[in-house]
Design a protein around this nucleic acid. Structure first.
Lengths: 228, 228
DNA sequence: ACACAGACTGGAACGTCGTTCCAGAGATGT
DNA sequence: ACATCTCTGGAACGACGTTCCAGTCTGTGT
């Protein structure tokens, strides 16, 4: 049993919550590779062994950290609005969480059907249901939205991985876009034509446009269950 | 300069291609954690140092391995069919590659705008263009498809990570589905209603259904550029 | 024929990581 | 007071990515 009123051995007593919080700080500050049991121990003024009493694994610690971050975005149940706006709100919540903590994007997809991804799925599904999608298409619609969100999340994580914290986002995009301009004009004809869009696009709006696209597909099917 | 006609020191001479091939074998056999410079050296009957002469990094080796796998799926240029079928063909190619080599799913998203993901993007974009999508919506449509594909790929990789090679796929799904049945009936109302779908669904068909959904969204917009 | 130069090898070694182990400190029950 | 349990933190283990380097091989110039 844990002690309710904390006796103070050295500082505050170690606890799972304190460890997870420190892990999040470390990941935010140092990136994905910055989370180390030794660095964590240093930050908590203890040894690695003490951490293992509260946490079984590094995987479990990472899952707990991502859970903690995503859980905060799933609190408000954007009610009263239209289903479309509710879907956008849920999706944006996940997007913003990944934007603020890029490492979340990489590890969201590690445990697919575990919380809190499952909670996202649940929220999306309810709104899809509210759109009037027939039962037979519910699973497809909700998981398509989820897969798209997870895909963008992974991309954002990958993008921010290659960027030094001081580098500007715009610089990065122009770098990629100019790299596209040097591609073979025949082999990469399409890519070159949209290089300009890449340079000037806004990640958040582009993400939302994709959500709208899928929503348009879902609602377009409401009358015609199968495409020709 | 490399020697053209191989002198045989010990066995065949080491080469970047042989190393990448061995890395793919190792990843397929042992999973993502199985790729080790020591294991690779053992399999190639050499030492770790020799490998580093042909490959700069473990990251580079992983990228080369994923490139080699995905490149084989991008060879045939499914011509003569409708744009819709061509998009499905490209998407299925990536899906099947990830299905055969699950580790690819995890590392496809690491370098977003690098080959061969860029080649997939190019192929998707051309077909989207052929659908008659206006220029302003091309980038959004193509990258939505790509993000969805990468999202599903990541999920598949994550799923196969938790499965022992002997475990059946059906067993796994029933395990997850029955786990869903024990969820809180109120908090996870939607998830529980689609648990049956999860149990009986086919990954490949579900993936294709998602592609169709996005395509439906793309074509639905051809007349109405903005949704209300 | 013979040495020299560069390409290429492979094993040893370094530092770091995740994880385990355990001697002990602090609190609690009797 | 003692015994017991919870909890700590530093040492130690094995494996990893990577570097180093003495050495081997092979083609070339003489």
């Amino acid at each position: 049993m844990r002690v309710v009123a904390a006796g103070k051995r050295r500082g505050e007593p170690l606890s799972r919550d304190r460890i997870v919080e420190a892990a999040i700080d470390l990941l935010d500050a140092e990136g994905e590779g910055g989370l180390t049991f030794r660095a964590l121990a240093r930050r908590l003024a203890t040894g690695p062994g003490a951490i293992y009493w509260h946490v079984t694994d590094k995987d479990e610690l990472l899952s707990a950290a991502t859970d903690a971050v995503v859980a905060t975005t799933m609190t408000a149940d954007a009610g009263g609005t239209t289903p479309r706006e509710a879907v956008r709100a849920v999706a944006l919540g996940v997007f913003d969480a990944i934007d603020a903590h890029p490492w979340v994007g990489s590890h969201l997809a590690r445990d697919p059907w575990r919380s809190p991804v499952l909670r996202v799925f649940e929220h999306l599904g309810r709104q899809v249901q509210a759109l009037g999608v027939p039962d037979a298409a519910l699973f497809t619609a909700a998981s398509s939205l989820l897969n798209y969100i997870l895909g963008v999340g992974g991309q954002n994580a990958a993008n921010s991985r290659g960027i030094r914290p001081d580098t500007n986002r715009v610089e990065f995009l122009t770098t990629v876009a100019t790299a596209w301009d040097t591609l073979d004009p025949e082999e990469y004809a399409f890519t070159r034509t949209v290089a300009g869009r890449l340079r000037e696009h806004d990640d958040r709006e582009e993400f939302l446009a994709g959500i709208d696209l899928i929503l348009a597909g879902i609602t377009a099917r409401l009358g015609t269950p199968r495409l020709p």
